[in-house]
Amino acid sequence: MEQNPGSLLAQKVVADLRKERLLSAKQLDELTDKLVSGSLKAEDWHLIVEIAVEAEQAKKNAEAN
């Protein structure tokens, strides 16, 4: 990826999101490019967040069982 202020900032954001475990690893892998392209729409974020929360819930349920 070309290194420019936008991509550097996107990488920092993704690193923090990874640290805080706010999104799944797969989602994070794809997020840098999406942030840099500026192509994310509100509905894309909706889907991203929904999938992340559902995945986390599913994991918790699996652990509980």
Partner: peptide, 19 residues
């Protein structure tokens, strides 16, 4: 401004408003 990041941030804000 970083248009790409600003655009992503704005769309995330829109998403939060919708939620």
């Amino acid at each position: 401004a970083l248009p790409c990041i600003d655009s992503s941030e704005k769309s995330l804000r829109d998403c939060i408003l919708l939620l």
